[in-house]
Simulated assay, not measured.
Amino acid sequence: MHFNPYSHTGFQAAVICLTIAPAFLAAGIYLNLKHLVLIFGPQFSVLRPPSLYTWVFVASDVLSIACQAVGSGMAAKQDPKIMWDAVRIIKGGMAFQITTLGMFAGCAAWYFVRVVMHRRELNPGTKALRQRWMFRLFLGSMSLAYVAILTRCAFRMAEFDDGWRSKIMTNETFFIALDTV
């Protein structure tokens, strides 16, 4: 879109990238939770084996992206008769993605509450790793990334509240602050 900001193909490519990017980032967080469960101790985990964190939540994100893709495909036809149906399908996929993120946060919070409650029973083989400041910085960075992804997904949901020409969607400041960054 650098040479033609009104390019329909460029617009579609940008929408696709903005739609799927958070799912890849979230998948990384889901995968990291599995490894954190192994580091702290799988006995505190709600899901067993720990790889279920990755499988369940990535599969849910794939399903949400599929819904968003179907809606986007319908919207790409630019048929006014189906435009609101397309928006509803996109919003349904986004709502499912937000629900998935919420369920993930619940599982992660439950796990880490149990870790704190049983801190004397943590995996002794990973004590040195858990005490490193870089590891703690990683935990904070992962939490920040989660909040950013959730914020972006909630923003996208609000963007589509009034369809493709909503006030939020056409507000450049919101777009740059809440979607692009």
Rank of each mutant, 00 (worst) to 15 (best):
R130T: 00
L31P: 02
A66E: 08
T100R: 01
D61L: 07
Y30R: 03
P50C: 01
L52T: 04
Q78C: 07
N171W: 00
Y53H: 06
Y30L: 06
L101R: 02
L139S: 10
R130S: 02
D179L: 14
N171G: 05
I29N: 05
I20T: 12
M157V: 10
I16C: 06
A76E: 07
I89E: 04
G140P: 05
V87R: 04
C107V: 11
G125F: 15
I98G: 03
T100K: 00
S7C: 06
F104M: 09
M117L: 15
L47S: 02
A27R: 04
D61E: 15
G140E: 00
F11R: 14
Q43F: 04
M94F: 08
V15N: 06
W55M: 05
T170V: 14
V58K: 02
G125C: 07
A75P: 13
N4H: 02
F174S: 15
H118V: 00
F104T: 10
V62Y: 07
N123G: 05
D179Y: 07
P5F: 03
N32G: 15
S60R: 09
I39D: 09
R88W: 04
I149L: 13
D179M: 10
W133E: 11
M103W: 13
L36Y: 05
A66P: 15
G93I: 03
Q12E: 12
G163H: 00
K167P: 05
R114I: 03
E159A: 06
H35Y: 12
F112R: 13
Q43R: 06
I176N: 07
L25M: 14
I149Q: 05
L144T: 08
D61Q: 10
M103P: 02
G73K: 01
A21V: 12
F11M: 10
Y6K: 15
W84L: 09
L139C: 14
A177S: 11
Q78P: 10
M1I: 15
L122W: 00
T126M: 15
L63P: 06
I16A: 11
Y111S: 02
T173G: 01
Q97T: 04
R136L: 08
P22I: 08
L139I: 10
A26S: 11
L38V: 09
R120V: 07
T9N: 11
I176M: 06
A154G: 07
P5E: 02
I168M: 06
K81A: 13
F155C: 03
R88G: 01
P22M: 04
K81G: 07
A158P: 04
P50A: 00
D85L: 06
K77Q: 11
A128Y: 04
S7F: 01
K127C: 08
W84E: 12
G140Q: 01
W55D: 05
P50L: 02
P124D: 00
L178Q: 11
F155E: 06
A26Y: 09
V181N: 14
T170A: 12
H35L: 15
M169Y: 03
R132Q: 13
Q78H: 11
K77D: 10
D161W: 15
W110F: 14
P124Q: 00
V147M: 08
C153Q: 13
V62D: 09
T54S: 14
T99H: 10
F155R: 05
C67S: 13
T19S: 10
S166V: 01
P50R: 00
R152H: 08
A66F: 12
F155P: 09
R156V: 07
L38I: 10
K34T: 11
T9D: 12
Y6D: 13
N32L: 06
